[in-house]
Design a protein around this nucleic acid. Structure first.
Length: 896
RNA sequence: GGUCGAUUAGCUCAGUUGGUUUAGAGCGUUGCAUUGACAUUGCAGAGGUCACUGGUUCGAAUCCAGUAUCGACCACCA
């Protein structure tokens, strides 16, 4: 037995993690067992562990450890994502600090820097996951930019191009002027921001004082205006139809177009049309054949076409243009206005609509397939109401083609080679050349120009469940064994980015890779179940993010509460899909928050640790068990089996949080508070059979708890039986739920109620627990069953309630305080006088409550339709309620 | 503007196809307890007309409709 009364998580965690690694317990290779597979949502290679990671990796670890205990071949594949724009932004930033500009470096040198950065910082997060206890197969660690995965991406691009799903087009796209790349719609975050609505007047051509006033939030783009628009029915502006107006500052003459796109209610009812810098205006421009005048440079400055404010950043240009408009008298007024501004998810730069030439993937058909997969249950969502969000993303009206090219260097370079206007898509330059030579026999490699752009990060992530098993390589053994994976655990915020696209990839490629026969048998889906975790938010319900600085230090948390404590804390408030609120630790502890839950987890570890110390401290002798211990042992076995049954059901339904809380109560309340107290011997010596039973129950509880709290359970598991190497909790078996005696559980709970009542009486009357009292129970068939025969019940009551005697009697004893055990009368005999009046009042209060209850039940039973329609069992139950209440009332009345 | 979700004890939340003695947990709170597992503790108590209004049903926290409040997501309103 350890001398310390406090559990030291750090030492234990370090020891067991190293031990598990040494024994290769996380390792998975294909064999005869049923596989159970999870692929990690690969964190950004330069990422640092935050609360969201802790939550979702805890859940994955619980699932994988449970599967391991179930005897499956559990395989959890870890890895990192190259996160093209996020990482490139970081590298650019770092280089800038060193005075190096990305453009001065060139692609190759830049990539050298990027890889150096990756070598230095990449994978820190994976080390941090180990501190959490994550039992990933680390030998399988993958990286989305490693050669094999790079090759898979290229292969897929070529295939999709050849099947006609990829195309290149000039489109209005979201441009990040800081990263100088295009963004997908999903990478743009729209938020409400304060802005101004500028009212600017345009003079009608050929007049001196006829003006039309428009409202715009972007005055700096008026130099790119190529028209004005008004609603055709708007009386105010009908005299402008067919006329031309003059754009202030630049003097361009542009037409006024009537179009019902314009909302006459908004602003002034007149709208400037700037096709180059607004998606809607672009549409209108297309419709009316307007010029597109792009006045912005790729880094968001005004170019020569703007004529004024040239060289200024668009933000500064706005100030300048407003000043100039003021001076020219064309600025009518400025209105305060709250507007949506789109910012880049990664750089936070204000996104500019910009006409660019990009690669797109056709989504309509693919999205329909992916939607179907979830609708028909081939992929199940937990919680299942997430399907609604998924549906709204993927339905034909909302889905748009996926812009897959990015103007970055850190990523898979698009395998397209150009010869003038011609495009050759192939795995390699040589293949592209070969193809090109069909048309131009004399070409050489120098004549072909590879696309400068790389692919969207998600264009590699969507292959993850297949590419981690080298599914695109020659050898399909691994893919055929592990695919489809079982569970995917991720936040709902990347449902479209990632989950949907993996499903698309699964349906798009699995048959190619594995064959018709395989997919007919196993399906095409990349995973069968998706567990959506909630977002971890702070106390103001803001999403935790580094930029807000509102995320607690994950490593500090692990140090303070231990991995088991943190895992407990993360999970205990995290029902699937629900956001969880995580506060920074509070000094006064007034409100419950997540770190308090971690504290609770830490206390739980300590409780387990001390329960083990108690058991280890018992002496054991070969003798008959104490009757109370025998009864308590039968009971705890039944409780354990009942709990396993419950927990099994919860785990199958992905109600992990509930399962853990159920086990918490079993350990703390049932096992420690009731069972251990019941078997605790007065002389410190336990019968062997009781000791063995206690150890056996404890051991099974440790296995049940192991997926949730792996370290403490492994530690105690070993100490309990002084186990040797190789006999380890992590690879033991999940306990089977045996049959249990419901009647026993019910009987024991009546005994517990009796004890509670005795303690309550002591509390109320200030009778110390040390003072023995006597209990007399009215003798009848039911109480004889409860207390007679098996002497254990009486001994148990005597011990737990400190009663000198427990007797079955016929009459009411003197100084007896009557109360009910179930429906039966009992008397607690005090050593002094009994305050009859107070007792009477209490009894009467109880009587009133019971009579009310009985009335309700009787009303129900007197309802003929209830008796006729309700199932037999329910009616019988109501009858029993009625009989019980009547018996209780009769007993109470007699007491009075 | 559209869609989805929430509203249960002071706080944070469970409540699994409507029915098990008239709702559960943790924390907080109140009272009592301290020399051998644990004060990172034990025992006990108080605390809820399940947002509101109607409806369906023999029966509703649970299903339906409406109202109120809050939240999330999507959407091109300059």
């Amino acid at each position: 037995m350890s001398a310390k009364a406090t559990y030291d998580s750090r030492e234990v965690e370090k020891k067991w993690y190293a031990y598990w690694m040494e024994h290769d317990y996380f390792r998975s290779v294909p064999d005869d067992r049923e596989p159970y597979t999870i692929v990690i949502p690969p964190p950004n290679v330069t990422g640092v562990l935050h609360m969201g990671h802790m939550l979702n990796n805890t859940i994955q670890d619980i699932l994988i450890r449970k599967a391991r205990l179930d005897g499956k071949n559990a395989c959890w594949v870890p890895g990192t994502d190259h996160a093209s724009i996020a990482t490139e932004a970081k590298v650019v930033h770092k280089l800038r600090e060193q005075g190096i500009k990305k453009s001065d470096l060139g692609r190759e040198d830049f990539l050298k820097h990027a890889f150096a950065w990756k070598e230095e910082y990449g994978g820190i997060i994976l080390k941090q996951l180990q501190l959490l206890g994550a039992s990933c197969d680390w030998e399988r660690t993958r990286f989305t930019m490693e050669p094999k995965m790079y090759a898979a991406v290229i292969q897929v691009f070529v295939k999709l191009y050849r099947s006609g799903k990829l195309y290149r087009a000039q489109r209005m796209t979201n441009w990040d002027p800081e990263a100088q790349t295009v963004l997908s719609n999903e990478e743009v975050i729209h938020t409400d921001e304060n802005g101004n609505l500028y009212h600017v007047r345009y003079r009608m051509e050929g007049t001196d004082d006829t003006y039309i006033t428009i409202a715009t939030s972007r005055p700096e783009t008026i130099m790119a205006d190529t028209a004005l628009a008004v609603h055709p029915d708007d009386k105010r502006y009908q005299h402008f139809h067919g006329r031309k107006v003059i754009v202030p500052l630049v003097g361009r003459v542009v037409p006024v177009i009537p179009d019902d796109y314009v909302d006459p209610e908004f602003g002034t009812g007149a709208l400037k049309i700037t096709p180059a810098h607004d998606p809607n205006d672009y549409e209108l421009g297309q419709k009316y054949g307007l010029d597109v005048i792009d006045i912005l440079t790729p880094d968001g400055k005004l170019n020569e076409l703007a004529q004024v404010a040239v060289g200024l950043d668009r933000i500064d240009a706005r100030t300048e243009v407003v000043k100039m408009l003021k001076e020219s008298g064309d600025l009518v007024k400025i209105e305060q206005y709250r507007t949506k501004v789109g910012r880049s998810e990664r750089t936070n730069a204000v996104v500019e609509p910009r006409l660019t030439l990009q690669w797109f993937m056709k989504m309509r058909e693919t999205a329909a397939t992916a939607l179907e997969a979830v609708e028909n249950g081939e992929v199940k969502f937990h919680p299942d109401n997430m399907v609604n969000m998924y549906r709204s993303w993927l339905n034909a009206e909302n889905v748009r083609d996926w812009c897959v090219s990015r103007q970055l260097w850190w990523g898979q370079r698009i395998p397209a080679w150009y010869h003038g206007e011609e495009v050759y898509v192939a795995q390699t330059a040589e293949e592209a050349l070969e193809e090109a030579r069909h048309h131009h026999p004399g070409l050489t490699l120098e004549d072909l120009q590879q696309d400068e752009d790389v692919l969207d990060t998600w264009f590699s992530s969507w292959l993850w469940p297949m590419s981690v098993f080298d599914g695109f390589g020659e050898d399909k053994t691994e893919l055929a064994y592990y695919y489809p994976t079982n569970d995917l655990v991720t936040g709902w915020d990347i449902m479209f980015f990632w989950v949907a696209r993996m499903i698309m990839a699964g349906y798009e490629f699995s048959e190619d890779l594995l064959g018709e026969e395989f997919v007919a048998e196993h399906g095409r889906q990349p995973f069968r179940d998706v567990y959506f975790t909630g977002m971890v938010r702070d106390e103001k319900r803001r999403k935790m993010s580094k930029s807000l600085g509102n995320s607690p230090d994950a490593l500090e948390l692990l140090r303070t509460y231990g991995a088991d404590g943190v895992r407990y804390g993360m999970l205990s408030s995290a029902a699937a899909g629900n956001d969880i609120i995580f506060d920074a630790p509070l000094q006064d502890g007034e409100a419950l928050n997540e770190s308090q839950l971690c504290e609770q987890g830490r206390k739980f570890c300590n409780k387990i640790f001390n329960a083990n110390r108690l058991i280890q401290g018992f002496d054991v002798a070969d003798r008959d068990p104490d009757p109370a211990a025998r009864l308590a042992t039968e009971w705890i076995e039944a409780r354990l089996n009942a709990t396993i049954t419950e927990v099994d059901r919860m785990m199958a339904d992905y109600r992990l949080s509930e399962a853990m809380v159920t086990l918490y109560r079993l350990v703390w309340s049932d096992f420690c508070s009731w069972y251990l107290e019941a078997i605790k011997p007065s002389d410190g010596t336990l019968s062997r059979s009781t000791y063995d039973a206690a150890v056996s129950v404890f051991e099974r509880m440790m296995t049940l708890l192991h997926p949730f709290m792996p370290f403490i359970t492994e530690e105690v598991w070993h100490q309990l039986r002084h186990r040797n190497e190789g006999q380890d909790c992590i690879v033991s078996s999940w306990p089977e739920a045996g049959d249990y005696d419901v009647e026993l559980l019910e009987r024991f709970s009546r005994l517990q109620d009796t004890v509670t009542h005795v303690r309550d009486v002591r509390n109320q009357r200030g009778i110390s627990h040390g003072e023995p009292l006597r209990l007399a129970v009215k003798k009848n068939a039911s109480t004889e069953q409860l207390l007679g025969g098996n002497a254990g019940a009486g001994v148990f009551l005597r011990g737990a309630g400190n009663l000198a005697s427990v007797d079955l009697v016929d009459g009411a004893p003197a100084n007896g305080l009557p109360f009910l055990i179930g429906n039966d009368t009992a008397y607690l005999i005090l050593n002094g006088e009994v305050d009859l009046a107070a007792e009477r009042a209490q009894t009467e209060e109880e009587l009133t409550r019971l009579r009310g209850f009985l009335k309700g039940v009787e009303k129900k039973l007197s309802n003929e339709r209830f008796v006729a329609n309700a199932p037999e069992g329910v009616v019988a139950l109501e009858r029993k309620k009625q009989a019980d209440a009547e018996a209780k009332i009769a007993n109470l009345e007699k007491m009075l």
